[in-house]
């Protein structure tokens, strides 16, 4: 069924992934802002969700995004050492490493969920990261249903 959907989408139009991007308020969100102010082009695939700190990202956010049908998830925070709250991203880093490993273990494709550090000064780099992530998710195709809820009732946007 998932395969079927996938074929329909790719045959009728080019697949444009929907990517949920959780960005920390102090660095990556500002980086995205800088990319905008500086007019650095990047694909309009991400749906930005601003969080106070990468340490605030609950692992369930990532799972829920995919359950609701996101084709990819991007998570970005301050570079280690630069956290506005001193240690938020250090704590987050441990969580992210475990999440990433577990998701791959249960069979989620590499590249579906991406993590990066982007500072407020890295507008160009933010655009590059989004480009890279978009390319990878596009190559993977739509959410393959490892976590996508098929009949949750009305969540098929």
């Amino acid at each position: 069924m998932i395969m079927g959907e996938c074929q329909v989408t790719t045959e009728t139009k080019t697949f444009e992934p929907k990517i949920a991007a959780f960005l920390c308020n102090w660095c990556s969100y500002a980086g995205a802002d800088l990319a905008g102010v500086g007019r650095f082009q990047y694909p309009a695939t991400i749906r930005t969700i601003r969080v106070p700190c990468s340490g605030r990202i609950n692992p369930l956010y990532i799972l829920k995004a995919m359950a609701n049908g996101a084709d990819g998830v991007l998570i970005s925070g301050c570079h280690p050492g630069d956290c506005h709250y001193m240690s938020g991203n250090y704590v987050a880093r441990r969580k992210f490493a475990l999440i990433d490993s577990l998701l791959k273990y249960v069979g989620l494709e590499e590249g579906r969920v991406s993590f990066s550090w982007v500072s407020a000064a890295e507008g160009v780099r933010f655009a590059e990261v989004v480009k890279g992530v978009t390319e990878r998710v596009t190559a993977l195709g739509p959410n393959n249903g490892v976590f996508k809820v098929q009949d949750g009732g009305g969540t098929n946007e």
Binding site: L60, K95, L98, V149, D151
Partner: peptide
């Protein structure tokens, strides 16, 4: 609130539950 799961027994939701639980038990 937030409603993470619908209560359905779809295998994707079941994995969401189990993976979520395992992540809460990490370390």
């Amino acid at each position: 609130s937030p409603k993470w799961l619908t209560g359905g027994v779809d295998q994707a939701e079941n994995l969401f539950f189990q993976a979520g639980r395992v992540l809460h038990l990490a370390g």
